[in-house]
Simulated assay, not measured.
Amino acid sequence: MATFTYERRVYLGDTDGAGVVYFNQFLQMCHEAYESWLMAENLPLQKVISAGDLAMPLVHATIDFFSPAYCGDRLVVTLTVTLASPHRFCCDYQISQAESLQLVARAQTHHVCIALPARKKAPLPPSWQRTIGDLDHH
């Protein structure tokens, strides 16, 4: 299956008092990878948001931690996006050390497309369905 890779350095502001990456910063890194993938695929998230008729809220998130990361580390976030239904997609993330490829964390998020203002499920825009559905063919 095709993947998207995002690389990021750990900054001091990402760490807690013990000097390791604070747990919520890993989800922030995942979201950065997701936004970078959207830009690379030319999927207009900002256009969807500003149009005001659709939203794609995150409805589920999980994360498991395997190894600490520290200020100055280079991390690689590998993202795989799958279409779960015409209105739902899932993002799987693996966060690894760039040099050693040691797995640091694994996360998953689920997103649902809703029509506004009713806040009812709606099909993803066709360009999103095509792009996510085509990930297997890249």
Rank of each mutant, 00 (worst) to 15 (best):
I49N: 07
T131W: 04
F65H: 14
A55I: 08
P68N: 01
Y93I: 08
D92S: 08
I114A: 05
G72M: 10
K120V: 12
D92E: 13
C30Q: 05
V10E: 09
S96E: 15
E35D: 15
V76W: 03
R130Y: 04
S85C: 13
V21T: 02
K120R: 15
L124E: 03
Q28F: 01
L103V: 13
V112R: 01
E99S: 10
L103Q: 06
S96L: 03
N42P: 03
P57A: 12
T131V: 15
H137A: 11
Y70N: 14
L12T: 08
I114Y: 13
D92F: 03
V20Y: 01
L135N: 14
T3Q: 12
D16G: 09
G13C: 06
H110K: 06
S67Q: 12
T78C: 12
V104R: 10
S100K: 05
E35P: 11
A98E: 10
H111Q: 06
F23Q: 12
T15P: 03
T3C: 05
W37H: 12
D73E: 12
Q129I: 06
C71R: 09
Q102Y: 01
F66Q: 13
M1T: 13
T82K: 10
D134Y: 00
T3Y: 02
M29S: 08
K121T: 02
H60M: 05
Q28Y: 03
S127L: 08
P126Q: 14
P68A: 00
L101M: 11
P68G: 01
C71Q: 14
A105L: 02
A122G: 01
G13W: 10
A122Y: 04
K121C: 02
Y11A: 13
A51K: 05
L38A: 12
H138M: 06
W128V: 00
S50G: 03
R106P: 01
A118P: 02
T82I: 10
V20E: 06
F26Q: 00
R88S: 04
R106W: 01
D16R: 13
R88M: 04
T5A: 07
V20T: 02
V20C: 01
V112L: 13
A2H: 14
F4P: 05
S50V: 04
W128C: 02
I114R: 02
I49R: 11
L27Y: 08
L38R: 05
A98P: 12
D64M: 09
C91H: 03
A107E: 00
Y22H: 14
H110P: 04
L79W: 07
K120W: 02
H60L: 02
L75A: 07
T62V: 12
A40E: 15
H60V: 01
A84E: 02
H87K: 11
